[in-house]
Simulated assay, not measured.
Amino acid sequence: MPESLEELDGLLLTVPKHRTVQRDGIHFQGQRYLAPTLAPFVGHPVTIRYDPRDISEIRVYDHDTFVCVAVDEAHPNLRLSLRDIETARRARRRELRQAINDRIPAVAAREEPHQAAPAPRRRRLRTYEEDG
Rank of each mutant, 00 (worst) to 15 (best):
P2G: 04
A99E: 14
V42S: 09
Q31A: 13
I26R: 10
R53C: 01
K17A: 11
G132W: 06
A99R: 15
I104Y: 07
L96P: 01
I48D: 03
L8T: 02
S4T: 15
H18E: 07
Q31L: 15
R103I: 00
E130L: 03
L34Q: 10
T87Q: 14
R94D: 12
V71I: 12
P113N: 06
L5A: 08
A74R: 15
M1F: 11
R123T: 03
I85E: 01
R89C: 05
Q22G: 02
E57H: 13
E73A: 09
A119W: 13
S4G: 06
R103D: 09
E86L: 13
A106S: 10
A91H: 07
L11V: 11
L96M: 11
R124V: 13
T87Y: 07
T127F: 09
L8D: 04
D72Q: 05
V46K: 09
T47F: 03
V21H: 09
V71W: 05
H114E: 08
H63K: 11
D84N: 13
Q98W: 05
L12S: 10
D54M: 04
E130W: 06
S81M: 13
E3L: 11
T87K: 14
R19T: 02
L11E: 12
F41N: 00
L34E: 08
I100T: 04
P120R: 15
D51L: 01
N101V: 02
R92F: 03
S56F: 00
D131S: 02
E130G: 04
H114P: 00
A99Q: 14
Y50A: 13
V42R: 13
E130D: 11
Y128R: 07
I58P: 00
V69F: 01
R97M: 08
D54V: 01
P45K: 15
L125A: 04
D102K: 10
D51P: 00
V69E: 08
H63Y: 10
A88H: 07
G10K: 03
N101M: 12
Q115L: 14
N101W: 06
R79C: 02
Q29F: 10
D72G: 00
Y50Q: 10
S56A: 05
D62N: 11
R94S: 06
E129C: 03
T37V: 04
R126T: 06
D102N: 14
G10E: 09
R53W: 01
I26E: 08
L34K: 08
R122G: 01
A91K: 12
V69D: 03
A106F: 04
L8Q: 12
E130Y: 05
G25Q: 10
